[in-house]
């Protein structure tokens, strides 16, 4: 049952989004989200929607898969919308009588709920686009590159990247092992399906204990095997696959800045121009 786990949700492809320098892609995704929180005007959101749609189209990833990414976040979306709707004070549009009280829905509440929901939706789509077009290894590489400038501040960028790589490498191994242990325990009559939460949690102990024991043994052996191949933490390590910025990445930055310009005009300048 654990065997089919995939980490992240990477979908291989050869779109410009797939080919971008991973560190830059991470930065632009963060910038995309930051820009999102500067927007208020419907016109600006419309433009933002067009830009996002263009990105999705370019990525070659089907809209269905992107929408699938939204589904697990549905409750958070609804919760955020309701909180904003009910908790924002302002000019009352209508009120819902409730026993002795009444809940007032304000105009500001409606606007805020709508804006927050739209922002969250875009945020999820943006983050999904990153994880859908970047393999875990590229993500690791990107994070390493981004942390590298912090090395003088004693941020262990290589080590963090190494840890992430090893974690990615061991997920299938540990998943397979978990599967085996569960089967072995089930064969001995263990029951993981029935009972209340406490009972089920207790039933997990015979799975977790052997899993941890073996994980520590693996870690110990792996450390020896790494040492035997001259691993010593960092500094002078080289990389076989040096990722570099290419023309495509320069173009991506240019397009991004252009879009920011358009959004700025729609958000601020158009307001000045209109009565």
């Amino acid at each position: 049952m654990f065997k089919d786990i995939t980490i992240g949700q990477y979908i291989p492809g050869s779109s410009p989004l797939h080919k971008m320098y991973p560190a830059l892609k991470i930065i632009l995704t963060i910038a995309y989200i930051v820009v999102l929180f500067f927007l208020h005007k419907p016109l600006a959101y419309a433009a933002f929607f067009v830009f996002t749609a263009a990105l999705i189209l370019m990525s070659g990833i089907s809209v269905k898969i992107i929408l699938k990414g939204i589904r697990p976040m549905l409750w958070i979306l609804i919760f955020t919308a309701l909180i904003n709707l009910f908790m924002t004070q302002g000019e009352t549009v209508f009120s819902i009588p409730l026993w002795a009280f009444s809940i007032n829905i304000s105009r500001e509440g409606i606007v805020l709920a709508a804006t927050m929901t739209i922002r969250l939706l875009f945020l999820i789509v943006g983050a999904s686009l990153l994880t859908l077009t970047t393999s875990p290894l590229q993500l690791t590489d990107g994070i390493e590159k981004l942390l590298k400038p912090l090395r003088p501040l004693k941020v262990p960028s290589y080590e963090i990247a190494m840890m992430m790589t090893i974690a990615i490498r061991f997920i299938p191994t540990l998943a397979e092992e978990t599967d085996k242990i569960i089967k072995a325990q089930t064969a001995r009559g263990a029951d993981f399906e029935t009972g209340n939460i406490l009972r089920r949690a207790k039933a997990m102990v015979p799975i977790l204990v052997p899993l941890f024991v073996s994980a520590f043994r693996r870690a110990d052996e792996l450390a020896t095997a790494m040492e035997a191949r001259c691993y010593n933490g960092g500094g002078k390590r080289t990389r076989m696959k040096e990722t570099r910025m290419k023309k495509l990445d320069a173009a991506a930055i240019a397009v991004f800045l252009l879009c920011c310009g358009v959004l700025a005009v729609l958000e601020y300048a158009v307001k000045i121009g209109l009565p």
């Binding site: 191994t173 080289t238 076989m240």
Partner: peptide
């Protein structure tokens, strides 16, 4: 002995590159 416990990389060729990377060999 245990092949699972001596591999660090998630891709075969990266695994083979691990040692020379550690030694600082040119890409």
């Amino acid at each position: 002995q245990n092949p699972d416990n001596q591999m660090v990389a998630a891709v075969v060729e990266d695994e083979v590159a691990f040692a020379p990377e550690n030694l600082g060999v040119e890409p």
